[in-house]
Design a protein around this nucleic acid. Sequence first.
DNA 1: TAGAGAGGAATGAATGTTCATTCCGCGTAG
DNA 2: CTACGCGGAATGAACATTCATTCCTCTCTA
Lengths: 190, 190
Amino acid sequence: MNPENKRDSVLCSALALFAERGFDATTIPMIANSANVGAGTIYRYFENKEVLGNTLFQNYVVTFMKTIEAHYSEEQSIRQQFHHLFRAMVLFTNENEHALYFIKKHSGAHFLNEESREDFVQLLNLFRSFFETGKEQGVIRELPSEALIAIVYGAFLELQNLVRVGELVPDPELLSGVEESLWDSVRHHS
Amino acid sequence: MNPENKRDSVLCSALALFAERGFDATTIPMIANSANVGAGTIYRYFENKEVLGNTLFQNYVVTFMKTIEAHYSEEQSIRQQFHHLFRAMVLFTNENEHALYFIKKHSGAHFLNEESREDFVQLLNLFRSFFETGKEQGVIRELPSEALIAIVYGAFLELQNLVRVGELVPDPELLSGVEESLWDSVRHHS
DNA sequence: TAGAGAGGAATGAATGTTCATTCCGCGTAG
DNA sequence: CTACGCGGAATGAACATTCATTCCTCTCTA
């Protein structure tokens, strides 16, 4: 996001700081400072720190879902659907630095309100229904969908974190290697 | 850990709370209350909150490494070594509730001191050398070891979290299914 | 066209609250 | 009786939040 106004500037700085240090370890003055804005200005746009956190969380969960849905079609083979899911995750990560890591780090956080939690459940449901279909077709491994999600989601986010801190460079070769690895972890092997 | 004295009681309560809510969102009075101890008593045993956090972190990272090493032998085949690594992770998880999740959640936290960070690097090195050997033998997929670690570590911890919150029951069938899934994600496929 | 004035936006010092940490009086074991 | 371990109220620092004031920009007037 290129901050074109103070509100966006606050959101943008808060996202980076929350992802880096966590919600609780980030202070309002830090955010104000990083956004080049007075502390009071933040309260013109957000009722309080929690609202700011929830706004960010919901924004990005919804954006993530849209990214997935935009690249998704139930017509295709499960393998192709998986490819699109994976590409959507990569795309979202590229277009929204810090966002996926912020979501992951705070998906169980205490400051989240009901709406944020529901949005997150919906996101998981996208993945769940994919795996359910795959298992019905005998293409996906017979494990609880929760477990399959955890494997792909956990592995991907841990990788994304390495990229974030610069320990890994996401060139095409690495990406396709990772996609294959994750696919092998969830597919049915005969 | 069965708290037999006040110090252990504090450690035990702090571990559970840090894992649940995170270091920053956990207050000293919360810990004192949960440990059935006065707030001041905590300071008889730990210089301050950071020291308490680092003590826990180092304790469990070291215990985790010991658990792994106790079940490890370089003589065996890579597949067998992987099995032992996996069982060690499960074992450690069973014997030390909350501990692995605490480690994961805080492995990049700002309160960690140099020593804690070094211990964590050592832990990762255990995994790294396993994967390096495996790649040399052509048994493990050609991906950077960092990436392989992230996949196994990320997936396992996300799963362990599901178990922790009760969404998944770790029966033997599930465990061996997960082990196979993770093995398929890192092994070389011909 | 210049200048005054209104109204919204922005600021950061001031406020009240919450927390880590300290301190002191109490009880208990030796 | 004494000394050590303990609890929890007391303290001060750091924080989220508020608000009186300033600053900007647009508009209306002479």
